[in-house]
Amino acid sequence: MKTLVLDVPDWPGHQAGQHVDVRLTAPDGYQAQRSYSIASAPDGSGHVAITVERIEDGEVSPYLSDVLVEGDQLELRGPIGGYFVWSPDLGGPLLLVAGGSGICPLMAMLRLRVAQGSRVPTRLLYSSRSLEDVIYRQELDALVARADGLQVFHTLTRAQPEGWTGYTRRIDHDMLAEVAFEAAQEPLNMVCGPTPLVEAVATTLVGLAHSPDRVKTERFGPTGG
């Protein structure tokens, strides 16, 4: 897992939750393109952070992870996607549910929330395989320590450190019933991660009486890395 900070001239700014397409062109003209969620909050700087998960047999992620060095140029298209976005003026309460690298667009939302001094009641439920797989762990701890209305719940599905008191299983009905806001509060629910996780969570939230209109999803499919 590697975070790249791209300096984009004339970047028009983005909304938290949007993505960029990165296109690589080989000397023979062959092109490969992948979408990456923007993890940085819009801040007017022209800097765009993406976090890349290295897929062993992938076409794009090994290049971005191992070959690219500071000063190299990349072909970008974006910002893209105006559906899976959040800003403090949409209000809350806000439930964010992430699986693995699905945290990235949600991180942009959490960073924007802090940058704007928003106190919208917000909960993050974040599923990872092990503690080492938790992306942005220290930053999330620091955000919680601000005590500005953010709660973070981790579940570690494969391995847990000694003394772990968080959840230890895949996200299920009982977990969402404990962590999610009451449907009567009409929270906004944003779910991002691998397709099976996203579908299970979205279906369960609707089963818990949340309106489908208030459950927004972003599935990470088989991108080919």
Binding site: S35, G81, Y83, F84, T195, P196, E218, R219, G221
Partner: peptide, 18 residues
Amino acid sequence: MDEIELRLDGNAAAGMLR
């Protein structure tokens, strides 16, 4: 790959539609 793994959100087509 089964059908569920291949399913994305319409949001994923935003780049092409742009």
